[in-house]
Nucleic acid binder design. Structure first.
Lengths: 118, 118
DNA sequence: CTTCGACATATCGCCAGTCTATATATTGAC
DNA sequence: GTCAATATATAGACTGGCGATATGTCGAAG
């Protein structure tokens, strides 16, 4: 069976999405989760068990950095983009668009097969 | 390190791409590989070790069906879409475009952050 | 005639990454 | 006092893509 809450499309795009949302300002995990869900019109539901390891990885790769806020009882770990992360984001955004265009072209053929060049 | 020949974007889109190419007519694996590479302007290099298992899976799920051509010494296994596969393709194409639009919107924010609604 | 590179399919084992489930703790509402 | 929402984290299972490897045909070059 396949299932999985989202529909597998963004399997390779989660990094990009997370970096994008963080580009809008510092966030802690739970908040990022909410905002991503909102921003995607409910399409993307980043699971906690996916997100936290992902954030840890992004941090270990130094695309983002974190700071605990322990001033309240509810411990929150705030993440922000590093400079490297910001560059990474623009880089990846460019790449992603190439691939998206490429798939779009592929799909266009399906819908509207080339009418054989005169 | 990340590496991987393509850039991980299409991790979840390979099914879609293969079905798309097959929508253009029957192909055997090797040919499909070439055509996909061409059609993508060299962007997508579907590896043999990825493709054959993928084709087997798609066949077991009955989105495609195969026939050996053994009339020549070079054995070729021709694949074509089933009716279900064709439906699957249009279905997935629709879904993919939703997700692509969603990411595009996310990226647009990055490039052009909302100027605070008057 | 042999050898080399392109053609053609297949499988195995590795590994990265996602999900489910689970754990833990705080807080506000009822 | 209990429950749901907030908040983070990890372990284990599973999937899927990739590199390596195997097997064999075929045509061209030498």
């Amino acid at each position: 069976m396949k299932s999985s809450s989202n529909s597998d499309w963004m399997k390779g795009s989660l990094d990009l999405m997370v970096l994008s949302v963080l580009a809008g300002g510092s966030k802690y995990g739970y908040l990022l989760q909410q905002e991503l869900q909102q921003a995607s019109g409910g399409l993307v539901e980043l699971q906690a068990g996916t997100m936290y390891p992902l954030l840890h990885r992004l941090e270990s790769e130094e695309w983002i950095r974190s700071r605990w806020d322990e001033t309240t009882g509810r411990r929150r770990k705030w993440y922000e983009l590093t400079d490297a992360g910001r560059n990474r984001l623009t880089q990846q955004a460019r790449e992603w668009q190439s691939y998206a265009d490429c798939i779009r072209a592929l799909l266009a053929r399906v819908i509207d097969p080339v009418p054989r060049p005169a």
